[in-house]
Design a protein around this nucleic acid. Structure first.
Length: 445
RNA sequence: CGGGGCGUAGCGCAGUCUGGUAGCGCACCUGCUUUGGGAGCAGGAUGUCGGAGGUUCAAAUCCUCUCGCCCCGACCA
């Protein structure tokens, strides 16, 4: 993509309403624009990241055996009356009346809808287990939306729902998601620590939140110091979803980690010097709640003996749009965003320092064409701007690598390669640049 | 939902107390010069001062009502 043609409205100064770093940088980097409190439009650069994150989530769900569906944003009130949550959910639920005075709502979550779908479709234990997910916009009319997309009213969530015949099967489904979540976050370069969590209004008795440690986290969390040096992905990667995941689950939940609500200083097993207290961003939450919805909503199947068995259910959520903010919270410096390669909107930025110079322009255009031809996603800054402005813009949007072509290097047949994260610079022979990034593009994806 | 703050050009702000021609920086447009870390000079365009009502010869400024946004707390992917 040529930057001269790209819709990338960068801001040089911080908008007054943005207080935390991810919100500031998303606005400054032209990723989002706010339309009202907690509701955002995603501009081209931001949407590319959102889709990358979504795709990683999708791939790990598919790998775990979950199947993708798509449920609507608007749901009928009567379903929520069946579970009793229509009244319980309170003002956070956006209620709508259609032209026939039918009570509708913009879905804050989908337990009721999916339970109704499965209830009507699955009648035999032979059709279990099932795990269905969708990635859809949700709306929760938060009293106080804040922190940009980290705590919006409208947000993109991956939610899925498992259906099993018995608690043992349901626990296996829960364990699968436990593993899938670790893999998902690790692929984005995030260390998300599973923490014993309160089940809240969803209900149930087993629940873990996946928390990313960050100074700007919304809540206080506590964990064993050992978590800081742990590479969970290495172990999670080797697991087979059909094997018994309980030992893995037990191992990783034995290392202390708890949210504020679940942490009790008097009963905490860790000595004070082993306990880390930090701020956490909740990027995922998994629940096992048994028959909480299946019983009131009559979601039963015929068991092996012909008896009616209510479905054992769990639900699992990942805040996809929140993750974009969380990724920035975890990956930035004073100059801007530093994208992990797996979620970067473009793999590479190409800066032509002197587009008015014919030799520079020809060389940069040619390099751009070759990179594209090699399948490298490259954002090409071909604008007539001062060098400083281009460097600042490229650092701000945070592409993992930059190729900087100027008259100085061109005369020597070289191009400068700068790594965004480390700031390390190398001179590359011009002709090797394409091959180098064609290779890294394959590795990263 | 309790407490606090803010709405003036695309962004950041001054002007409001003490009513009297709506300003500054950046961004934008034109021209020339410049070109390895947010360039310089010259010229130019941009506003229902959040909205409604009121007071006044005169309202960004005073009064009333209203809408929006942000922060702290309680609540949540």
């Amino acid at each position: 993509m040529r930057l001269s043609q790209y819709f990338l409205p960068l801001l040089r100064e911080n908008p007054a309403e943005a207080q935390i770093v991810s919100h500031r940088l998303m606005l400054r980097a032209g990723m989002i624009r706010q339309s009202s409190a907690g509701i955002y439009s995603w501009l081209p650069l931001g949407l590319r990241v959102l889709k990358r994150v979504e795709q990683i989530v999708r791939e790990e769900q598919d790998r775990s055996g979950a199947q993708e569906i798509l449920m609507p944003t608007i749901q009928p009130a009567e379903l929520w009356r069946e579970s009793g949550r229509y009244e319980d959910y309170g003002k956070e639920m956006l209620r709508i009346t259609d032209r026939h005075d039918r009570e509708m709502l913009y879905g804050p979550t989908n337990e009721e809808l999916i339970t109704a779908i499965v209830r009507d479709a699955i009648k035999s234990y032979r059709d279990l287990p099932k795990n269905l997910y969708h990635i859809q916009w949700k709306f929760r009319d938060e009293v106080r939306p804040r922190f940009g997309v980290m705590r919006g009213r409208e947000f993109l969530m991956k939610d899925n729902y498992s259906f099993d015949l018995d608690p043992q099967g349901a626990k296996h489904s829960y364990n699968k998601m436990f593993v899938a979540y670790l893999r998902t976050f690790a692929r984005m370069g995030l260390k998300a620590i599973p923490m014993r969590a309160d089940t809240g209004p969803i209900g149930g008795d087993l629940s873990h939140e996946f928390q990313i440690l960050a100074e700007t986290g919304e809540s206080e969390v506590f964990c064993d110091r050992l978590w800081l040096a742990t590479d969970i992905l290495a172990e999670a990667e080797e697991l087979n979803y059909d094997s018994d995941l309980e030992p893995f689950f037990r191992h990783w939940t034995s290392l202390y980690a708890a949210t504020d609500e679940m942490h009790r200083p008097e009963t905490c097993p860790l000595p004070p010097d082993q306990l880390v207290s930090a701020r956490g961003i909740e990027v995922g939450h998994i629940f096992y709640f048994g028959t909480k919805y299946s019983v009131p909503m009559g979601a039963v199947v015929a068991g092996a003996g012909g008896e009616e068995v209510p479905l054992e259910m769990g639900s699992y959520g990942i805040g996809v749009s929140r993750l974009v903010g969380a990724l920035i919270e975890a990956n930035h410096d004073d100059a801007g965003i530093i994208w992990p390669e797996t979620v970067a909107p473009f793999r590479l930025g190409l800066i032509n320092l002197r587009p008015s110079d014919k030799a520079c322009r020809n060389a940069a255009d040619e390099l751009y064409a070759k990179l594209r031809g090699a399948g490298v996603e490259v954002l090409y800054d071909d604008r007539e701007e001062s060098p400083g402005a281009k460097f600042a813009a490229m650092d701000l949007i945070g592409l993992p690598d930059q190729l900087i072509l100027g008259p100085r290097g061109l005369a020597a047949g070289t191009i400068e390669w700068k790594r965004r994260r480390t700031g390390a610079r190398h001179e590359l022979p011009l002709e090797t640049a394409v091959a180098k990034f064609a290779a890294t593009q394959r590795e990263a994806r």
